[in-house]
Protein backbone atom coordinates (compact mmCIF):
# COMPACT_ATOMS: atom_id res chain seq x y z
CA UNK A 1 0.00 0.00 0.00
CA UNK A 2 1.06 3.61 -0.73
CA UNK A 3 -0.23 6.75 0.95
CA UNK A 4 0.37 10.21 -0.49
CA UNK A 5 -0.41 13.11 1.86
CA UNK A 6 -0.86 16.59 0.39
CA UNK A 7 -0.24 19.59 2.59
CA UNK A 8 -0.82 23.22 1.73
CA UNK A 9 -2.62 26.43 2.67
CA UNK A 10 -5.92 27.71 1.28
CA UNK A 11 -6.53 28.56 -2.36
CA UNK A 12 -3.55 26.71 -3.84
CA UNK A 13 -5.48 24.02 -5.74
CA UNK A 14 -4.52 21.19 -3.40
CA UNK A 15 -7.73 19.22 -3.88
CA UNK A 16 -7.37 19.26 -7.68
CA UNK A 17 -3.73 18.17 -7.52
CA UNK A 18 -4.64 15.38 -5.07
CA UNK A 19 -7.44 14.15 -7.35
CA UNK A 20 -5.16 14.35 -10.39
CA UNK A 21 -2.56 12.25 -8.54
CA UNK A 22 -5.06 9.47 -7.89
CA UNK A 23 -6.24 9.71 -11.50
CA UNK A 24 -2.71 9.46 -12.83
CA UNK A 25 -2.16 6.29 -10.77
CA UNK A 26 -5.45 4.75 -11.99
CA UNK A 27 -4.37 5.39 -15.58
CA UNK A 28 -1.05 3.59 -15.13
CA UNK A 29 -1.47 0.88 -12.46
CA UNK A 30 -3.92 -1.99 -12.27
CA UNK A 31 -5.04 -1.35 -8.70
CA UNK A 32 -7.60 0.62 -6.73
CA UNK A 33 -6.55 4.23 -6.29
CA UNK A 34 -8.53 6.58 -4.06
CA UNK A 35 -8.55 10.29 -3.29
CA UNK A 36 -9.87 11.31 0.12
CA UNK A 37 -10.94 14.93 -0.21
CA UNK A 38 -12.21 17.42 2.31
CA UNK A 39 -14.28 20.06 0.62
CA UNK A 40 -14.08 20.09 -3.18
CA UNK A 41 -15.69 22.80 -5.30
CA UNK A 42 -19.07 21.84 -6.67
CA UNK A 43 -17.88 21.10 -10.21
CA UNK A 44 -15.02 18.92 -9.02
CA UNK A 45 -17.36 17.17 -6.65
CA UNK A 46 -19.64 16.36 -9.57
CA UNK A 47 -16.71 15.20 -11.71
CA UNK A 48 -15.62 12.86 -8.91
CA UNK A 49 -19.11 11.47 -8.51
CA UNK A 50 -19.19 12.48 -4.85
CA UNK A 51 -22.80 12.30 -3.82
CA UNK A 52 -23.11 9.94 -0.90
CA UNK A 53 -22.28 11.18 2.55
CA UNK A 54 -19.62 8.71 3.55
CA UNK A 55 -19.16 5.92 1.03
CA UNK A 56 -16.35 5.71 -1.49
CA UNK A 57 -17.51 6.17 -5.08
CA UNK A 58 -15.92 4.73 -8.18
CA UNK A 59 -15.30 7.38 -10.85
CA UNK A 60 -16.03 6.13 -14.38
CA UNK A 61 -13.06 6.83 -16.69
CA UNK A 62 -13.36 7.26 -20.44
CA UNK A 63 -11.36 5.59 -21.88
CA UNK A 64 -10.98 3.18 -18.97
CA UNK A 65 -7.70 3.23 -17.01
CA UNK A 66 -5.56 0.23 -16.12
CA UNK A 67 -6.82 0.53 -12.58
CA UNK A 68 -9.82 2.08 -10.88
CA UNK A 69 -10.23 5.64 -9.64
CA UNK A 70 -12.24 6.06 -6.46
CA UNK A 71 -13.11 9.16 -4.49
CA UNK A 72 -14.36 9.73 -0.97
CA UNK A 73 -15.36 12.78 0.98
CA UNK A 74 -14.06 13.27 4.49
CA UNK A 75 -17.20 14.22 6.36
CA UNK A 76 -16.11 14.70 9.96
CA UNK A 77 -19.54 14.29 11.49
CA UNK A 78 -20.43 11.24 9.39
CA UNK A 79 -17.10 9.52 10.10
CA UNK A 80 -17.53 10.15 13.80
CA UNK A 81 -21.10 8.82 13.69
CA UNK A 82 -19.85 5.71 11.90
CA UNK A 83 -17.16 5.16 14.47
CA UNK A 84 -19.68 5.50 17.29
CA UNK A 85 -22.08 3.06 15.65
CA UNK A 86 -19.30 0.62 14.87
CA UNK A 87 -17.41 0.68 18.14
CA UNK A 88 -19.66 1.89 20.97
CA UNK A 89 -20.74 -0.66 23.50
CA UNK A 90 -24.23 -2.02 23.22
CA UNK A 91 -26.88 0.53 24.13
CA UNK A 92 -24.37 3.39 24.34
CA UNK A 93 -24.40 4.52 20.71
CA UNK A 94 -27.73 6.34 20.94
CA UNK A 95 -26.82 7.99 24.20
CA UNK A 96 -23.64 9.32 22.61
CA UNK A 97 -25.26 10.40 19.34
CA UNK A 98 -28.05 12.29 21.13
CA UNK A 99 -25.86 13.96 23.70
CA UNK A 100 -25.86 17.80 23.58
CA UNK A 101 -22.07 17.91 23.78
CA UNK A 102 -21.72 15.40 20.96
CA UNK A 103 -23.80 17.65 18.70
CA UNK A 104 -21.10 20.30 18.91
CA UNK A 105 -17.96 18.26 19.33
CA UNK A 106 -17.47 17.49 15.64
CA UNK A 107 -17.12 21.19 14.85
CA UNK A 108 -15.33 22.41 17.89
CA UNK A 109 -12.84 19.88 19.13
CA UNK A 110 -9.52 21.09 17.85
CA UNK A 111 -8.12 18.83 15.17
CA UNK A 112 -11.27 16.72 14.82
CA UNK A 113 -10.82 16.78 11.04
CA UNK A 114 -7.31 15.38 11.36
CA UNK A 115 -8.45 12.75 13.83
CA UNK A 116 -11.18 11.62 11.48
CA UNK A 117 -8.80 11.53 8.51
CA UNK A 118 -6.69 9.05 10.44
CA UNK A 119 -9.77 6.99 11.33
CA UNK A 120 -10.79 7.01 7.69
CA UNK A 121 -7.36 5.90 6.42
CA UNK A 122 -7.62 2.95 8.78
CA UNK A 123 -11.04 2.00 7.37
CA UNK A 124 -9.86 2.42 3.76
CA UNK A 125 -6.68 0.42 4.18
CA UNK A 126 -8.84 -2.48 5.28
CA UNK A 127 -11.11 -2.19 2.24
CA UNK A 128 -8.48 -3.02 -0.35
CA UNK A 129 -7.35 0.41 -1.54
CA UNK A 130 -3.72 0.12 -2.55
CA UNK A 131 -3.07 3.78 -3.31
CA UNK A 132 -4.59 6.41 -1.03
CA UNK A 133 -4.18 10.13 -1.71
CA UNK A 134 -5.09 12.33 1.26
CA UNK A 135 -6.09 15.96 0.86
CA UNK A 136 -5.62 17.67 4.25
CA UNK A 137 -7.29 20.77 5.67
CA UNK A 138 -6.23 23.99 3.91
CA UNK A 139 -4.03 25.29 6.67
CA UNK A 140 -0.57 25.10 8.01
CA UNK A 141 -2.09 23.49 11.09
CA UNK A 142 -2.90 20.40 9.05
CA UNK A 143 0.57 19.20 9.87
CA UNK A 144 -0.78 18.51 13.36
CA UNK A 145 -2.57 15.66 11.63
CA UNK A 146 0.51 13.73 12.67
CA UNK A 147 0.44 14.81 16.32
CA UNK A 148 -3.24 14.98 17.15
CA UNK A 149 -4.07 11.28 17.26
CA UNK A 150 -1.34 10.83 19.80
CA UNK A 151 -2.39 13.83 21.85
CA UNK A 152 -5.94 12.51 21.83
CA UNK A 153 -4.77 9.06 22.87
CA UNK A 154 -2.89 10.66 25.76
CA UNK A 155 -5.95 12.59 26.78
CA UNK A 156 -8.37 9.67 26.79
CA UNK A 157 -5.71 7.46 28.28
CA UNK A 158 -5.10 9.79 31.19
CA UNK A 159 -6.02 8.47 34.57
CA UNK A 160 -8.42 11.26 35.27
CA UNK A 161 -10.55 10.78 32.18
CA UNK A 162 -10.67 7.04 32.78
CA UNK A 163 -11.61 7.66 36.34
CA UNK A 164 -14.39 10.02 35.40
CA UNK A 165 -15.49 7.78 32.57
CA UNK A 166 -15.82 4.77 34.77
CA UNK A 167 -17.02 6.32 37.95
CA UNK A 168 -19.18 9.18 36.76
CA UNK A 169 -22.45 7.29 36.99
CA UNK A 170 -21.59 6.31 40.52
CA UNK A 171 -20.29 9.75 41.38
CA UNK A 172 -23.39 11.41 39.97
CA UNK A 173 -25.38 9.69 42.69
CA UNK A 174 -23.01 9.94 45.59
CA UNK A 175 -21.41 13.32 44.90
CA UNK A 176 -17.83 14.16 44.10
CA UNK A 177 -16.61 12.84 47.48
CA UNK A 178 -15.34 9.64 45.94
CA UNK A 179 -12.86 11.55 43.77
CA UNK A 180 -10.60 12.25 46.71
CA UNK A 181 -10.06 15.53 48.46
CA UNK A 182 -7.48 17.10 46.15
CA UNK A 183 -9.39 16.29 42.93
CA UNK A 184 -12.60 17.43 44.50
CA UNK A 185 -11.10 20.75 45.46
CA UNK A 186 -9.83 21.29 41.92
CA UNK A 187 -13.11 20.16 40.48
CA UNK A 188 -14.97 22.69 42.61
CA UNK A 189 -12.69 25.47 41.40
CA UNK A 190 -13.04 24.62 37.74
CA UNK A 191 -16.78 24.29 38.21
CA UNK A 192 -17.04 27.72 39.80
CA UNK A 193 -15.27 29.11 36.76
CA UNK A 194 -17.13 27.40 33.96
CA UNK A 195 -20.48 26.89 35.61
CA UNK A 196 -21.95 23.67 36.92
CA UNK A 197 -24.16 22.96 33.91
CA UNK A 198 -21.35 22.88 31.36
CA UNK A 199 -19.07 20.84 33.58
CA UNK A 200 -21.79 18.26 34.25
CA UNK A 201 -22.53 17.94 30.55
CA UNK A 202 -18.89 17.43 29.66
CA UNK A 203 -18.33 14.88 32.40
CA UNK A 204 -21.42 12.98 31.41
CA UNK A 205 -20.23 12.97 27.81
CA UNK A 206 -16.79 11.69 28.74
CA UNK A 207 -18.36 8.95 30.81
CA UNK A 208 -20.09 7.46 27.79
CA UNK A 209 -17.55 8.43 25.13
CA UNK A 210 -14.51 6.99 26.85
CA UNK A 211 -15.15 3.44 25.69
CA UNK A 212 -15.04 4.30 21.99
CA UNK A 213 -12.23 6.78 22.47
CA UNK A 214 -9.97 4.07 23.81
CA UNK A 215 -10.57 1.90 20.74
CA UNK A 216 -10.03 4.92 18.55
CA UNK A 217 -6.70 5.67 20.18
CA UNK A 218 -5.49 2.10 19.51
CA UNK A 219 -6.40 2.28 15.80
CA UNK A 220 -4.89 5.75 15.46
CA UNK A 221 -1.61 4.46 16.80
CA UNK A 222 -1.49 1.85 14.03
CA UNK A 223 -2.35 4.35 11.30
CA UNK A 224 0.21 6.87 12.47
CA UNK A 225 2.82 4.11 12.28
CA UNK A 226 1.90 3.70 8.56
CA UNK A 227 2.24 7.45 8.05
CA UNK A 228 5.64 7.39 9.71
CA UNK A 229 6.94 4.68 7.39
CA UNK A 230 8.70 6.34 4.43
CA UNK A 231 8.33 3.14 2.39
CA UNK A 232 4.56 3.59 2.55
CA UNK A 233 3.87 7.29 2.91
CA UNK A 234 5.07 10.27 0.90
CA UNK A 235 4.45 13.90 1.87
CA UNK A 236 3.98 16.54 -0.80
CA UNK A 237 3.31 20.25 -0.57
CA UNK A 238 1.16 22.26 -2.97
CA UNK A 239 1.73 25.99 -3.01
CA UNK A 240 1.48 28.98 -5.33
CA UNK A 241 4.34 31.15 -6.60
CA UNK A 242 3.51 33.96 -4.14
CA UNK A 243 3.69 31.67 -1.14
CA UNK A 244 6.20 29.12 -2.46
CA UNK A 245 9.30 29.97 -0.47
CA UNK A 246 7.49 30.60 2.80
CA UNK A 247 5.24 27.54 2.57
CA UNK A 248 8.13 25.27 1.59
CA UNK A 249 10.26 26.51 4.47
CA UNK A 250 7.43 26.03 6.93
CA UNK A 251 6.39 22.54 5.85
CA UNK A 252 9.95 21.39 5.27
CA UNK A 253 10.99 22.22 8.83
CA UNK A 254 7.68 21.08 10.37
CA UNK A 255 8.06 17.68 8.68
CA UNK A 256 11.72 17.47 9.56
CA UNK A 257 10.93 18.13 13.23
CA UNK A 258 8.66 15.11 13.14
CA UNK A 259 11.15 12.96 11.31
CA UNK A 260 9.41 12.84 7.90
CA UNK A 261 11.08 13.61 4.58
CA UNK A 262 9.41 16.06 2.18
CA UNK A 263 9.22 14.45 -1.28
CA UNK A 264 7.87 17.03 -3.69
CA UNK A 265 6.83 20.67 -3.72
CA UNK A 266 4.37 21.48 -6.50
CA UNK A 267 4.29 25.17 -7.33
CA UNK A 268 0.81 25.38 -8.77
CA UNK A 269 -0.91 28.07 -10.80
CA UNK A 270 2.18 29.26 -12.62
CA UNK A 271 1.11 31.36 -15.59
CA UNK A 272 1.99 29.27 -18.59
CA UNK A 273 2.92 31.38 -21.60
CA UNK A 274 6.17 33.17 -22.25
CA UNK A 275 5.31 36.84 -22.49
CA UNK A 276 8.70 38.43 -23.04
CA UNK A 277 8.79 40.65 -26.09
CA UNK A 278 5.01 40.78 -26.46
CA UNK A 279 4.23 44.42 -27.26
CA UNK A 280 0.65 44.66 -28.45
CA UNK A 281 -1.40 47.64 -29.56
CA UNK A 282 -1.01 50.68 -27.30
CA UNK A 283 -3.68 51.16 -24.65
CA UNK A 284 -5.49 48.36 -22.91
CA UNK A 285 -3.85 45.59 -24.95
CA UNK A 286 -0.31 46.60 -24.13
CA UNK A 287 -1.31 47.27 -20.50
CA UNK A 288 -2.65 43.76 -20.17
CA UNK A 289 0.40 42.23 -21.81
CA UNK A 290 2.75 44.19 -19.57
CA UNK A 291 0.75 43.17 -16.52
CA UNK A 292 0.80 39.53 -17.61
CA UNK A 293 4.54 39.67 -18.25
CA UNK A 294 5.13 41.18 -14.80
CA UNK A 295 3.09 38.51 -13.01
CA UNK A 296 4.68 35.71 -15.06
CA UNK A 297 8.14 37.11 -14.32
CA UNK A 298 7.43 37.09 -10.57
CA UNK A 299 6.25 33.46 -10.86
CA UNK A 300 9.46 32.35 -12.56
CA UNK A 301 11.50 34.30 -10.04
CA UNK A 302 9.72 32.55 -7.15
CA UNK A 303 10.49 29.09 -8.59
CA UNK A 304 14.10 30.03 -9.16
CA UNK A 305 14.42 31.21 -5.53
CA UNK A 306 12.90 27.98 -4.30
CA UNK A 307 15.26 25.85 -6.40
CA UNK A 308 18.22 27.83 -5.12
CA UNK A 309 17.11 27.33 -1.52
CA UNK A 310 16.76 23.55 -1.90
CA UNK A 311 19.57 22.83 -4.34
CA UNK A 312 21.42 19.67 -3.39
CA UNK A 313 18.54 18.46 -1.19
CA UNK A 314 16.32 15.50 -2.04
CA UNK A 315 13.23 17.64 -2.70
CA UNK A 316 11.71 17.87 -6.19
CA UNK A 317 10.36 21.28 -7.10
CA UNK A 318 7.87 21.03 -9.93
CA UNK A 319 5.82 23.86 -11.47
CA UNK A 320 2.22 23.21 -12.54
CA UNK A 321 0.61 25.54 -15.04
CA UNK A 322 -2.51 27.52 -14.23
CA UNK A 323 -5.38 26.39 -16.44
CA UNK A 324 -7.28 28.97 -18.45
CA UNK A 325 -10.53 27.83 -16.87
CA UNK A 326 -11.92 26.24 -13.69
CA UNK A 327 -11.03 22.69 -12.76
CA UNK A 328 -14.48 21.49 -13.68
CA UNK A 329 -14.18 17.97 -14.92
CA UNK A 330 -12.05 14.92 -15.50
CA UNK A 331 -10.45 16.44 -18.59
CA UNK A 332 -9.11 19.30 -16.46
CA UNK A 333 -7.76 16.74 -13.98
CA UNK A 334 -6.15 14.87 -16.88
CA UNK A 335 -4.40 18.09 -17.86
CA UNK A 336 -3.02 18.45 -14.36
CA UNK A 337 -2.14 14.74 -14.17
CA UNK A 338 -0.05 15.01 -17.34
CA UNK A 339 2.16 17.60 -15.60
CA UNK A 340 2.73 15.77 -12.33
CA UNK A 341 5.98 14.10 -13.36
Amino acid sequence: MKIVVYLGTGGVGKTSVAAATALSRARRQADKSLVLTIDPALRLRTALNLRERTLEQVVPLVPPGKGELWAALLDVRATLDDAVNMYAKKGQADRILNHPIYAQIADSLVGMQELMAVERIDQLSRRGFEYIVVDTAPSRHAIEFLDKPMAFADLVGSGWVKLVGRTYQFVARTGMMSLGRKSMDLYARVESLLGANLVQQVLDFYSIFVSIAEGYARRAEKTVALLKDPAITEFRVVTTPQKALRDARFFFSALKERGFPLGTVYVNRVWPHDASGAGGAPGLESDVLAWYAGVRQSHLHAIEELRKEYSGQPVSILPLAELDRDVDGLDALERIASQLG
Binding site: Q104, V110, V202
Partner: peptide, 8 residues
Protein backbone atom coordinates in the same frame (compact mmCIF):
# COMPACT_ATOMS: atom_id res chain seq x y z
CA UNK B 1 -9.90 18.06 29.46
CA UNK B 2 -12.70 20.52 30.03
CA UNK B 3 -11.35 23.41 28.01
CA UNK B 4 -10.39 21.11 25.14
CA UNK B 5 -13.87 19.68 24.81
CA UNK B 6 -16.14 22.52 25.97
CA UNK B 7 -17.72 23.66 22.71
CA UNK B 8 -16.76 27.16 21.70
Amino acid sequence: SLIEVAPG
